[in-house]
């Protein structure tokens, strides 16, 4: 089987910074990041294309084996956020999503653009105001806020 997931790991003190790239599916091998017994894991999902149903299952299983370590998800693409919102288990009591991409739409340019948001910018499930990088007009948040930010209330 071809393994399309690549994992890069950088361990400093008790923290692992793990960059994932490619596809998380049934063929993904997490051995490289198992049994590290660290206190904190920071997962960068920026380069993840998709995570399919088997990948979700395997990921949830992997996360559950991290033994109460602090887990940070950063730079989550929209597809990951959608999966997180649709499937329980991504977020545990020790998991936090610190940054993620959200869809915005510029009426003037008639184009969608993905904006990286920080969790701290979201208050009351309201998307922060952002400006179009091309024409500087105010962007419209292009998803259902309650639905998209649902993961922030998950534990």
């Amino acid at each position: 089987m071809s393994n399309q997931l690549s994992i890069q790991i950088n361990i400093q003190n008790d923290t692992a910074s793990i960059t994932l790239a490619g596809v998380i599916n049934e063929d993904s091998n997490f051995d490289k990041i198992k049994n590290l017994n660290l206190k904190k894991y920071i997962f960068d999902f920026d380069k993840i294309n998709i995570i399919n149903s088997c990948g979700i299952r395997d990921w949830i299983k992997y996360i559950s084996e991290l033994n109460n370590a602090e887990i940070i998800y950063e730079n989550c693409p929209q597809i990951i956020i959608e999966q997180i919102n649709m499937v329980h288990g991504f977020i545990t009591s020790k998991t936090e999503i610190t940054s993620f991409y959200a869809p915005y739409f510029c009426d003037s340019c008639d184009k969608e653009t993905k904006i990286l948001l920080k969790k701290a910018e979201i208050t009351n499930n309201k998307a922060p105001e952002k400006k179009c990088p091309t024409c500087s007009d105010i962007l419209e948040f292009d998803a259902l806020e309650k639905q998209y930010f649902h993961f922030l209330g998950q534990k």
């Binding site: 088997c54 299952r57 949830i60 649709m86 499937v87």
Partner: peptide, 21 residues
């Protein structure tokens, strides 16, 4: 249930994910 099946086969989520999208 919004959760995968814990089995050796499929996760039981594929069609749900497809249908929602």
């Amino acid at each position: 249930e919004k959760s995968p099946l814990q089995q050796n086969g499929g996760a039981g989520l594929g069609l749900y994910l497809i249908y929602e999208k």
